[in-house]
Simulated assay, not measured.
Amino acid sequence: ERLINQLSVPFIISPGVIDEATIMSPSARKQWVDNQLKIMKDNFLDGINFDYEGTITTKEVALREAYIDLVNETNIALKSVLPYSQVSVDVIFTPYSSSYDYGFHNLAEVSDFLFIMAYDEKDAVSGPYVAGPNSDYMMTKQGIDGFLHDPVVSIANSKLVLGLPWYGKIYECIKLVQDKCLLNKDGERFGHFGLFGNGGNYITYEAAYNLLMTMPENYRWNATSVTPFFSFQNSTTSKIYQIQYDDPLSLTMKYKLAADMDIRGVGIWTVDYLDYSDSPAGQQMRQSMFDPLP
C-alpha cells in the first residue's frame, strides 16, 4: 500500500469473467454496471479495468458492438457519479488479429485508454515449434505503430498504455540446438510448472531470477527480440528447459520505446511477481525493477 501511494497509482477494480450472454443483453449489462459501481463506491476505488480476453472474430459484428456498448455504458455510469474515475480496456498486442477484433478505435473513444498487453506474444504465433520471447521488441513496436497509424484503427497517443511483463515463460525442450529450444506440437501447454511460481508455463520474475543466480553462466541475450533467456537441465529428470523472460535491461528498452512513440505511458503485469521481503536480495530486486520505470 505504501508503494502504491508513493507512485500515485489509482486503485481500480478488474472484474472477473464477463460472459457473452451478459455482454449481449442490454438489461444484463445494466445490472452488471450497477454491481461494479456499487463495488467501487463501497471500496473507495478509482476506476475499472476491462480484461475480457474472449475471442471476437471479424465476422462477429453484434458481439463486438455489444462489448463496445458495455464499456461505454460503464464509462458513462461511473463518470456521472465519480467524475474522476478511470475506465481502461486491455487489448491484444496487435490490432491485426482476426480472432480478437474488438473494434479498437471505438473502444478507445469510449474509455480513458487501452492497455496494450505486449506479452504472451509467442502464444499468438503458430509454429515453428521453437520457444520464443514473451515480449518481442519488434512485435511490440509494430503493434504500437498499428494502433497509432493504421487508418482503420488510428488511436490517439494519449489513449495508449504499453503493458509489459514482469514474468516469463518456461518451456520443456525436446532438444536444445545452439540455444534453440525445440518443442513438440503442444509446446505451449507442455507440462505444469507450479514449482516455478505460477502454474502452466508461466514463471514469475522472482522465480526466474533466483533460478538464474544458481547458474549465471547460462544467461543468453536475443539481440533480435531484445530479450534475455536461459536454458538448463533438471538434474533429477534430465529434462531440458528454457526460460524466456524480461529483465531490467529489456524492459528499459521498451520503456524507452513507449516514450519515443509518445504514448500515454507504461504499465506492468504484474508488480506482485517480485521478492517483497526485507532481505537485501529482495530490496535489490525491487530497486532494479522499479528504478528504470519512467
Rank of each mutant, 00 (worst) to 15 (best):
M261D: 09
T236R: 12
S231M: 03
S235G: 15
Q244F: 05
D246K: 04
A258S: 09
Y241H: 06
D246F: 03
L257F: 09
A258P: 03
I240S: 05
I243D: 07
K239G: 11
F230D: 08
Y255T: 09
Y255A: 06
Q242Y: 01
Y245M: 14
I243W: 03
D260N: 12
Y245Q: 02
K256E: 14
Y255P: 03
Q242T: 13
S231R: 00
K239A: 14
D246S: 14
F232N: 04
D260P: 08
Y255E: 02
A259I: 13
S238Y: 13
A259V: 13
Y245L: 14
D246G: 04
F230N: 05
S238D: 13
K254E: 01
Y245P: 00
K254L: 11
S235Q: 15
L249V: 14
S235P: 13
P248C: 10
F232G: 06
S235N: 15
N234L: 08
L251P: 02
A258Y: 01
K239Q: 15
S231V: 06
K254Y: 02
Q233H: 02
Q242H: 07
Y241N: 00
K254I: 11
M253Q: 12
F230M: 10
Y245S: 09
I240T: 12
L251D: 03
K256W: 06
S231D: 10
